[in-house]
Amino acid sequence: MDAVEKTRIVVENVSKFFTSNLGRVQALKEVSFCAEEGEFVAILGPSGCGKSTLLNMIAGLETHDQGIIDVSVENVNQPERHRMMMFQESALFPWYNVIQNVMYGLRFKKGLKRADYTDVALYYLSLVSLKKYAYSRIYQLSGGMKQRVALARALAPNPQILLMDEPFSALDAVTCEQLYKDVQRIWRSQHKTILLVTHNIREAVVLAQKIIVLSPHPGRVIREIKVDLPYPRNLHDTAVSDLTYQITAILNQKSL
């Protein structure tokens, strides 16, 4: 649907400061990494390492103090339709029903006719297996279903980049496992660049091709790990467990 252009996320020496009652605090220190087009990258770190701040800055919701954040050719200063975001809570709008939520982002897309909104929304709802809930109200959905609708809503305007801010952290283990499968399937079929922020090591290993490990106070990159396991991956693969164990060791060592 869109003109094909290389979508590369480049983060170079990015620093961020906050002013709190303790004075000026450095949240991020010289963070650098990049995500190639179609790559699935996880940003992993304990709470307080500034990983959500980093994602917000890439989304254009916050500004950075030093360094460069570059998405394709244009500089990040405002959220654009070619990158969509998913949040920790579903952030679905309860005054709209499911399909109206999925259609929300379509109105800002140029060259898409109003008459086609429903078809586009239904296509993405069927992608997350929720087509029959199109006309349900948000409060009628379970937590997992809400996040799937949120995923459909983020995908509907056909963005090149999907930014995920701990979207699975509030879900139970069984629901998570199902969603990991869905996300792998959708990522591979839709060719998106995905940036996932998480504190769940196993989740990062199951989903990502590359894991950027951050350590807190101030947040900085301590390791970049390539995950060369074949897809689809399963939470219970031994290779996944092994790598999870190794990364846990790295994080423990750093926090000492």
Binding site: L61, Y104, G105, P157
Partner: peptide, 25 residues
């Protein structure tokens, strides 16, 4: 705040933001 953030990242500004998010929320 999450409603405003979500709508903002999808491209909603000013009057659209007011009409589709602020008022109904």
């Amino acid at each position: 705040n999450i409603y405003l953030k979500a709508a903002y990242t999808m491209g909603a500004r000013r009057l659209t933001l007011l009409r589709t998010i602020v008022f109904p929320a």
